[in-house]
């Protein structure tokens, strides 16, 4: 039964690796910056999962600690990269108004017809 669990974990790890490899395509060919950030963020989530599976495969607990760190770092890195590309600096205080005013945003049908022009 140990052997079966081992093979199950190896299979899961293989599929996660396939998913990560596929995501590299979006990372390389993403038309906009945000596609790439999205790909990196999703890649990080899969890396966390892969680390968890991998540490069960090799039978050591250390990998899970690294996975916890990676989950936190992935989130912080995403926010930091976004903030850097928004303000060209990291030393900026984010207040509520800097996120844009919703009342100025045109949505729905107006935007649908506006897209046509």
């Amino acid at each position: 039964m140990e052997q079966a669990l081992h093979y199950l974990n190896v299979g899961t790890a293989m599929f996660l690796l396939i998913g990560m490899a596929l995501l590299l395509g979006r990372l390389l060919s993403g038309p906009t910056l945000y596609d790439r950030i999205l790909a990196v963020n999703s890649f990080g989530t899969k890396t966390v999962l892969f680390l968890c599976v991998f540490s069960l495969i090799i039978g050591r607990q250390d990998g899970i600690d690294i996975a916890i760190l990676y989950a936190l770092m992935n989130f912080i890195a995403t926010i930091a990269v976004l903030k850097f590309f928004r303000y060209s600096a990291l030393d900026v205080s984010m207040n509520y108004s800097s996120r844009g005013d919703l009342s100025k945003t045109v949505v729905g049908k107006a935007e649908m017809s506006g897209e046509d022009t």
């Binding site: 906009t32 945000y34 950030i37 999205l38 963020n41 989530t45 966390v48 968890c52 899970i64 996975a67 916890i68 989950a71 936190l72 992935n74 989130f75 995403t78 926010i79 976004l82 590309f85 928004r86 996120r99 844009g100 945003t105």
Partner: peptide, 21 residues
């Protein structure tokens, strides 16, 4: 880890989408 992902992933998604918008 599951709890951390549950907390951080929607926040990150909202941040990315908000930045793009």
């Amino acid at each position: 880890i599951a709890f951390l992902l549950f907390l951080t992933s929607p926040t990150a998604a909202h941040a990315v989408v908000g930045a793009a918008h």
